[in-house]
Structure formats: C-alpha cells, structure tokens
Design a protein around this nucleic acid. Structure first.
Lengths: 360, 360
DNA sequence: TTTTGTGCCGGAACAGTTTCTGCCGGGCTG
DNA sequence: CAGCCCGGCAGAAACTGTTCCGGCACAAAA
C-alpha cells in the first residue's frame, strides 16, 4: 500500500515533490526526479482516487487509436475487452501514446498520470521497443496479437501457423502448384507464422519455394489490388493466392471481380478474417480465422484479475487457437478442372459443401 | 467551483454524506439523498482528482459498446472522437450504461461516479427516453447521429434527406419506376429522413407510392438477403433497391451475387455508407455517404470546448451535410436498356464514369 | 423497563494535487 | 565589493474526495 507520502518519507522528500514527479511538472531537479521514479517503480505504486483505488485500465495505441484501415479487428477487439472488464468492474480508457506522452517521462509515469492501473497494448511493427520498455518498467501490461521472446512481456495471441499450414495444404490438395503469398512488408510475428505455414506446407508437399511468388506490401485495401495484378501478370501466373491480411484479401477479391476474374474458377483465394467479414462477401471466403473479440476478452480478464489480486509478477504468455474454414473461394485450378463454372452452378456447389470447421 | 465540502456546508451536512450520495452508498436517507442530488444538479458540481479537474469524457452506449454488427460506423466514430479530444487534452472512457448504472441512481450521479465531465451518447431506437432524461438533468452531453425535438437535447447529426432524395431521383432519371425501399423496422430519425427522401422523390416525379415495395426489417446483414429475395419475388419485381442501412446494403449485394443476379444489369442498388466500405466492393456502390468520423470529431470538439469554457448552457443542434456518390451499382433498368452487359464491359463503363460527388 | 439492533450521519484519517512561501545560489548593477 | 534581484527547487499548507469508526436516536425485542 505505497502512497505518495510514504514514498516521500522514504526519500526524505515532501509529498508535493513526489506528486510533481508523477505529473511531470518541470520544476523538479533531474536527480530528484530520477530518484523518485526508480523508487516508484521498485515499490509498485498505484494511484488512488481519494481513498479508493482507481479501477481503470487503458487500451493504448502507439499512434492514432482505432484507425479505420485496421478493418474489423479493432471493433471486435474493443467489444471483447469491454466484456472482459465486467467481472472486476473496471473501466476502460483509450490512449494514444504518441499524442499524450511527454518524451521526457517514463511509460509508467505516463500511465500513472493518466490514472490507469494497467494497459492493454496494441503492437505494430514500429513499437516493439516501446513495448519491451513498458514491460521492463514492470507496469501491468499485456500485448495483444503479438509474440515476444523477452520473458517479461506478457502477451496473448492467436497462433495462425497450424491453420495457415492446413489452409495451404488444402490448396495443394486441390491441385494448386503455383500459390502466391501476399503479406506485410514489415512482418509482425503473426504474419511470420502465416508465412511459415505457407513455406512449410509447400516443403512438405515437395514443392519448390519460388520467391517470385511472394509479395510484400504495406497492408491495406489497395495493396490487394496490386497483388492481384502482379500475380496474374507473371509469365506463369499463380492459380491461387494466400493473403495474410484481411483488408488485402478484400482488395484482391474486389480487383478480381473488377477484372472479370472469377473466383474460384480462375483463381483460388485464401484469406484471413478477424471477425465475420468472410461471410459477408460472395463467394464466402475460405479463410484462416482468428477471434479478435476473444483475444480482447481474455486479455482484459487476465489483466484485471492480475491487478485485483495484486499479483504484480503474474505472467501471461498464452496462445489461443485459430481455425481454418473452407468456404467458396477455393477450388481446383482451372487447368485441371477444365470446365466452366458459372455463378449459379457455384452456388449449388456451395450449398452442398457446408463450411467445415477445422480446429487448428 | 463547488466542492463536496461546500455543498455539504450549504445543506448542513458532512462531506461524508455528500460523497456517499455521489457514490450511491446505501446507508443514506432517501430525503437527504434527494436534497443533495437536486443541489448538486443546481450548482453544476464537477468531481476533481485531488485539486485538479478531471478531464475525461465518455462515449456511452445504452447496452454493449462497439458491437460488431454496427459495421464500420463505430470505429469511424471512435477515431473521429479521439481526434476531436486533442485540443483540450481530454481523455476518453467507454461506458455501458446498462451494465454499470445502478437503477436507483440518476444519470448525473452515474456519470459523476465514473469521474467524467461530459458524455457523447449513442442513440438507438429504445433509448430516446434515457437521452432526454440525461439532458433534463443538465449533465453535459451530446447525441450522435440523431435528431431531437426537445430543446434541451444537444445533438449532432448528418442530414441524409437531401442526398437520399437526390439519390432516388438519380434512379428515376435512369428510368427506374419500381424502386424498393429496405429500412429498419424501428426507425430512428436518420432512417425516417431517408424514407422521406424516397417518398418525396417518387412524388415529385409523379410516381405512385406503392407500399408493397417498402420492407421494414431489423438491421443487419441477413436482413439484406431477405430483402433481395422478397423484392425480386414480387409478381412485378423491382428494378432498383434503396437500402438505408450499410450492413443491409452489403447483404443485398452478396445475395444478388449468390443468386447470379448481376448488379447493375439486372438490379440497381443504392446504399448508404458510413466510411469507405462502398469502395471496397465491386461494383463500387452508388451510395449516400455520411462521414461518421467527422461526426465524432465535431461532437467531441464541441463537448470539450463547452466543458473547458464552463458554458453549461451551450446548445448544439447542428446538422452536417451528407453527399451522394454515383458509382457502379446503378444503371438503367434492364427492360429499357435491353442489352447484355457483362462484368468486363461494365468495368469499362466504370472507368469512363468516375465517381462524381454531389454535395447535399 | 432494559437491552439490543439498525438506520443514518458526522468526525477524523488519509488519498493526491496545487498554491504559497521561502531558501539558496548565481548574476547583474551601483 | 556590496547590494539587489531573480530563478530553480522544494516544503508547508490548503484543499479535493473517499472511507473507517463511532455515536446518536429510535425501534424492536427480551
């Protein structure tokens, strides 16, 4: 139960000074500030509101929160987090670290200034260092949808390797030999897993790995359009594409329709889905699915119980399963099938072949 | 600068009692609670953190926040709100009124207990009464995307009447005579506006209003599928559909593709879009567009400036424009055009006819 | 009648923040 | 060189909201 006054007494300072450090006020000596900060981190200070503990955690983004381009991942995640907060009666704040954090304050300092007791962190390519710093400061935190080697980082992610591999094996089983891979140009661990699934499936089937079939682009809808054009523009075009990003998948799909390329007759498409968008397009998307909402729920629940129990050394390095769902965008390659399949016929096929869930 | 102690002194009570009222503790007399509450509302109490004002507002949902089914409206709105918060350095909390509010506390009480100074309210069909109550309690609030007659309710919405009317006129101009309307079964003012746009456009063109062409369904993706089946199953089918809900629009579109109905050759489709989903399908959707992100930004900005200036009587009853964007899902009806138009040809048409913006 | 219990509230203690004040050293000026 | 001023820095005090503890009054039970 460390308080500002207790810390002040330990350091022979006044509560005022400690408070000034916490709020990043300028008029405090650099050495003093340093002394206070290290002590605060040692002792695990938590701010209170009056005499009551503040029960707020944050969902923190490195830059702008909940950007539109993130697709359906963010709303699903948020919805899950809100549900996971309920049991311990916590509230949720949204934070942008870049916008609000002063460069000369530590992360713990920033979070305490915002009056939160823990933080769910979104991780993108460029802020891995930020996240290890936060973990090193021992501020209660958990990272969503990313994996870390550093033992002090808590994370909760979905392992898309098995499903990805199974998905690509599904393509190979259908007879595809030239399978394109469209992925981020800056790979997080999730995309790396999907890539491994791709290469391992190819290797296991004895297929050569052709680097020219792998495209690395910035994420987003328009990337999908480029992917399709490039992959079908090859001298020996692909017959199937595995897109590791939901928005990119949709981009590929739209561009295919735009160019009159029938999926899956002319091209099989394998995607990734965070929520249920795969069911909202036609043909329904054969996809590796991860439940962003479940990620949010689990993460929020873990973080709040850890805080409520006061267990500052709790560790979370959980991986939940993804699944692979066969829908209407994959079929044998045209060369092999050798038959015209119109939309109406495809629909009948679809009706016979109900989406089958494959646990990863 | 009313404080708990000041209010207590005015009422000859102790600060403890006032605090108990604010936190909805059970052991305080009903009459006393009432006295404190009315005084608190009169004087416009704001909670502080230590000696500092708490600069937090909330985005409050009647039930579960940011549900997935809401489509892209919620993330766009959130993103806008976060941007609008910046100038006055406010933070954002997410609240679920149903989950956290005790039935025997007032709304102001609830919000103060949560330590927020203002609230952006989402309005659905069932919580209009809740919103007028909040406004009557004079708690700083603003409603998003809904219109209210009650003068004490602040709102910010997009007026989709002119764009909707123009959109339906566009269909009529293309030669459509039987135009279906798919809308919510419980109409908020937004959907009522769109319906008015529909009926007025028909009336102005001298077309009879056929009630059998109007379908009212619960919102959502699957509603769109029912709409398409029903409207094309009419003895005299429609040649165009105006769907007033984004998710429903997507449902119609997918079901059309599933059934092999070519849009816009066999059916013209007019939709509504909150963000940029209309550009992510093919053909790109001709749609009435409202900028949910701008709504969020403006609302957050108004609310925080109003709070920062301490102007408790500020009034916001703003309406921002929507626009109408012609894209690829509308064309002359098949009977009139009398020609087959394949996907490839349509694409060329598309290229000639760039999306044209029409200010509403 | 006495005892016990409960509803209700005030005092005090304690949480964090800010304002006011003062110390102390350095630099400028007479 | 003396005197004055000024800025950096930190503590005391004042003020905010909350909770714990105790007490008063009234009702119910023994």
């Amino acid at each position: 139960m460390p308080s500002v006054r207790a810390i002040a007494k330990q350091l022979s300072l006044s509560p005022a000074t400690v408070s000034r450090v916490l709020n990043n006020h300028p008029d405090v000596d650099e050495a003093t500030r340093e002394r206070v900060l290290t002590r605060i981190n040692e002792v695990g200070y938590v701010p209170r509101f009056g005499r009551r503990l503040t029960n707020v955690i944050a969902l923190a983004y490195p830059d702008e929160p909940v950007r539109n381009e993130y697709g359906s991942f963010e709303p699903a995640l948020l919805s899950g987090i809100m549900r996971g907060l309920g049991e311990h009666h916590f509230d949720l704040k949204l934070l942008s670290i870049r916008r609000d954090k002063s460069p000369d304050e530590s992360y713990s300092q920033f979070f305490m200034r915002k009056g939160i007791r823990g933080v769910v962190l979104r991780c993108f390519r460029h802020n891995r260092a930020m996240i290890t710093s936060i973990a090193e400061e021992k501020f209660p935190s958990i990272v969503i949808a990313e994996r870390f080697e550093e033992p002090q980082v808590n994370f909760l992610r979905a392992d898309s390797y098995p499903s990805s591999r199974r998905a690509v094996e599904h393509l190979i089983g259908l007879g595809h030999r030239r399978i394109g891979l469209a992925m981020h140009n800056v790979a997080d661990s999730d995309h790396a897993d999907r890539r491994r699934g791709y290469t391992d499936a190819l290797a296991a089937a004895g297929l050569a790995h052709d680097p020219s079939l792998v495209m690395e682009l910035p994420s987003g809808f328009s990337a999908g359009e480029q992917v399709l054009d490039a992959m079908l523009g090859l001298r020996e075009p692909v017959t199937a594409i595995f897109a590791t990003n939901p928005m990119t998948t949709l981009g590929i799909m739209r561009r295919a329709q735009e160019r009159g390329i029938l999926v899956p007759r002319d091209l099989s498409l394998l995607g990734v889905d965070d929520s249920d968008v795969r069911l909202h397009v036609w043909p329904r998307l054969t996809a590796v699915t991860q439940d962003a909402s479940a990620l949010g729920l689990e993460a929020a629940h873990w973080l709040t119980t850890m805080i409520a129990k006061g267990d500052r050394d709790a560790v979370c390095r959980r991986t939940i399963a993804t699944s692979f769902e066969v829908n209407g965008t994959t079929a044998p390659p045209a060369a092999k099938a050798g038959r015209m399949v119109g939309p109406r016929m495809l629909r009948e096929e679809q009706d016979e072949e109900m989406p089958q869930e494959v646990e990863a």
